[in-house]
Structures are given as structure tokens and as C-alpha cells.
Design a protein around this nucleic acid. Sequence first.
DNA 1: AAGCTGACTCGCT
DNA 2: GAGCGAGCCAGCT
Length: 100
Amino acid sequence: MAHDALPTPFAEDVLDIVSEIPSGRVMAYGDIAAVLGRGGARQVGQAMARFGAGVAWWRVLRADGTCAEIHRDEQVRRLQAEGVALVGQRVDMTRTRWVP
DNA sequence: AAGCTGACTCGCT
DNA sequence: GAGCGAGCCAGCT
């Protein structure tokens, strides 16, 4: 190992927001970037890909309610366990979107 | 310094 | 509803 395990300041801010999402609620990548006031949806996605393992990563998904390809099945299962309203494999964003 | 990448988003077909 | 292309911007070679 012995390489970059240090989150950037931007990534720390992203993780901080994710850790505030209550159970049963979700946020889109772009929502987090908007709350942060800088960066963009892709930057949030990258931060999660690298450092999201320590937070409730399954509560972050795409703006249209679909999950990240890489985890969609497990993500859907975890969301269902928290009582998130789903339509197939798609989250009902209008009901479950959370904003701090 | 310059270019490439990507857990994204939106508008158009 | 699904697919495509262009825009997006921090981080890494």
C-alpha cells in the first residue's frame, strides 16, 4: 500500500455532507456539489470512488434516481432496507431527496 | 504546464 | 423510454 490514502480538502467536505444524510434519505452527486458551492457532480463522484468507503455511500446516487453502475444491486438493496421508495431499481427522488 | 480521466448532468433525437 | 454528445472541474500522470 503506502500511497495516497489522504483525502483532499474537497473530498473531506464531500464526505462530511454524506455523513449528514439521515437514514432513508438520499442526495444526488450534483446536489452535494451545489451545497458545497464548488466543484461538480463528477468531482463528488470521484471523491466517493476513492474515499467513500467510510461513509454511507449508498445514500448518494444519480440525479435521475438511478444508482452508480458499479454498485447498483447492492446499493438498491441497502436503500430498500432503509425504507427508501423505489420504482424498480430507480429511487423516487421527489420523495427521498434530502437537502441540509 | 498540458492532457486525460471519471461512482455526473442535461438537452436533443 | 432509451441512447448520444457535449459540458463539466478536481486530481493525477
